[in-house]
Simulated scan of single mutants.
Amino acid sequence: MQGDIGEKGSCTTCAYTEDFSNYWTAALYFRHENGSYKRVPQYANAQLGTEGRDAPDIRGGMTIYYTQKDFESNGDQYITAFQPGFRMTVGSPTTDTIQGPNAQPGLRYTCLQDILTRGSETPGLPSKPCPAGIMAIHHFPSCWDGRNLDSPDHQSHMYNTDTGGFRNAGPCPISHPVRVPQLAYETMWNTSGFNNMWPKDGSQPFVWSYMDSKGYGTHADYVFGWKGDSLQRAMNDSCMFHRCGSPGIQGVLKTQTVAEMNHCSVKNIVTEDTEGWLSELPGHQAGIRFQT
């Protein structure tokens, strides 16, 4: 989608009603010993909770963070919000060696011992069954050249000084002097239903939709879509997390209920079967391989 998507959207699945940005990562599949595949379901970040016992659960399993410094402080540096038309990617589906993740410490996985597990990050997919699933983590670069809303590779207009985790990124270089929000995705994959199907030889059975069983090629896309100056207002404020706005808490950002979030959906236009047990990964039939 081109242009200011914040002004084109009619609803959003985000908690903040002014956020119409596009957030994307690949789909994760389980590969059975018999050669068939099944898509791994997502589940919501437990720390977001619901609005009460009888309220609906949040659909989807991606949590988005826009931080100014780290989880302890907003810092005192001015943060420039992304501009309409801005987009970027992080990671690459062609990366198949450990050298790639080592160069980008913000691309990691956590083997969830319970739904609140954090830390113990690895550069590749976990090598053993995870009791509560796998969390895929994507930290985007936070230094912008200040001119280009995009670049041919969707990455050159950005510079990555990320140090891993939710720590403050390093100083921006002269070539990319503008500090933008530190954007991060946490995607929760509920792999627990496949733990009793783990291969007898102990091999890692999960694969990304572009046929990556190591996990080094993990990547994510971002297209900015906040309405008006809403993201800049949040960056200028001293609020953090729910204090920026949530049901029952008045903040600088407007929020909506879980039911309203879940009501927003896009019609499925994919004609290929993607659910149930599949003989091939979607997009790989007849020997054709598509990379995301």
Rank of each mutant, 00 (worst) to 15 (best):
Y23W: 06
W24V: 13
W24Q: 05
W24K: 10
W24Y: 14
A26W: 00
A26F: 00
A26Q: 04
A27H: 15
A27K: 11
L28D: 03
L28M: 02
L28H: 06
L28W: 05
L28F: 03
Y29T: 12
Y29M: 03
Y29Q: 08
Y29C: 03
Y29P: 10
Y29D: 06
F30E: 05
F30Y: 15
F30C: 08
R31C: 07
R31N: 11
R31K: 13
H32R: 14
H32V: 05
H32D: 10
H32S: 14
E33I: 06
N34W: 00
N34P: 14
N34V: 10
N34S: 06
G35D: 05
S36C: 09
S36P: 12
S36K: 15
S36N: 11
Y37D: 08
Y37N: 07
Y37P: 15
Y37H: 11
Y37Q: 05
K38P: 15
R39A: 12
R39I: 10
R39F: 01
R39L: 11
V40K: 02
V40C: 07
P41I: 03
P41G: 11
P41S: 08
P41D: 12
P41C: 01
P41V: 04
Q42M: 02
Q42S: 10
Y43V: 13
Y43S: 05
Y43K: 07
A44H: 11
A44K: 11
A44G: 14
N45C: 04
N45K: 07
N45I: 00
N45Y: 06
A46R: 01
Q47F: 08
L48S: 15
L48D: 14
L48F: 15
L48H: 14
G49I: 01
G49M: 04
T50M: 00
T50C: 09
T50G: 11
T50W: 01
E51N: 03
E51M: 00
E51K: 01
E51L: 00
G52D: 02
G52Y: 00
G52F: 02
G52Q: 05
G52E: 02
R53S: 12
R53D: 08
R53I: 10
D54N: 13
D54I: 03
D54V: 05
D54Q: 08
